[in-house]
């Protein structure tokens, strides 16, 4: 009997992690799939509306509001930086500076004396103290298509988190993970510290 408790724990932990990783992989794959399908759908609809000759100048206009190449995957922007801080995304590591776009899938890192603050498109605010690492696994803010969600992991360091519109519209869709826990956030302001 006494041996069954530790055995259950060692059983559950790796399996839980494995399942979590599989879920993450699935989420990433479906997110990229969705983004692709989304783009295709928009293009098709644009063609369909312009074909009958009911062409409006609207299709040419969104360019003014879409300065980034892939605005669909932009989750937010860096707002504050001090010391060393980086955004790792698309295979490159960029020094963080105010205005730098943060894409879904990005990893944010701060050095031993660095801090970073960012605001996501739904007004969620995230800020980090020194020695932090944070991964944005999923961010969807398209209420018109019913797509809402935020999933991220604080791997180490300190986080100041203020929830935004995604959490307000669909509280169960906001999930923050740490190496040992899963946090369901229904609002609004939390502080998290992860020691290695």
């Amino acid at each position: 009997m006494s041996g069954s408790i530790p055995r259950t724990r060692t059983d559950v932990t790796p399996r839980f992690r494995c399942v979590a990783r599989l879920c993450l992989a699935a989420a990433l794959i479906s997110a990229t799939g969705l983004a692709g399908a989304q783009g295709a759908g928009t293009a098709a609809a644009g063609e369909a509306t312009s074909a009958p000759g009911a062409a409006t100048p609207v299709s040419g206009r969104p360019a003014a509001g879409a300065p980034e190449r892939a605005p669909d995957t932009v989750a937010g922007h860096v707002k504050t930086v001090s010391g060393e801080a980086y955004v790792v995304q698309g295979g490159t590591r960029m020094r963080a500076e105010p205005g730098l776009p943060i894409h879904v899938g990005a990893v944010l890192r701060t050095g031993p004396d660095g801090t970073l603050g960012a605001t996501l498109k739904d007004n969620t605010r995230i800020a980090f103290g020194p020695g932090s690492e944070f991964r944005i696994e999923d961010f969807r803010y398209a209420p018109a298509e019913g797509r809402l969600g935020l999933a991220a992991t604080l791997l180490r360091g300190t986080l100041d988190f203020v929830s935004g519109i995604v959490t307000r519209l669909r509280p169960e869709s906001t999930v923050l993970r740490t190496p040992t826990s899963t946090v369901g956030i229904r609002g609004t302001h939390i502080l998290v510290k992860v020691d290695e």
Binding site: V162, S163, T178, P179, T180, S181, T182, V183, G184, I185, R186, G187, T188, H189, I190, L191, V192, K193, V194, D195
Partner: peptide
């Protein structure tokens, strides 16, 4: 490692479930 719930700018406090 730990998590703290604090007041937001409006003085309100939310809810979190830590699993």
């Amino acid at each position: 490692s730990y998590l703290v719930l604090v007041r937001d700018d409006d003085g309100r406090t939310g809810v979190v479930d830590v699993r």
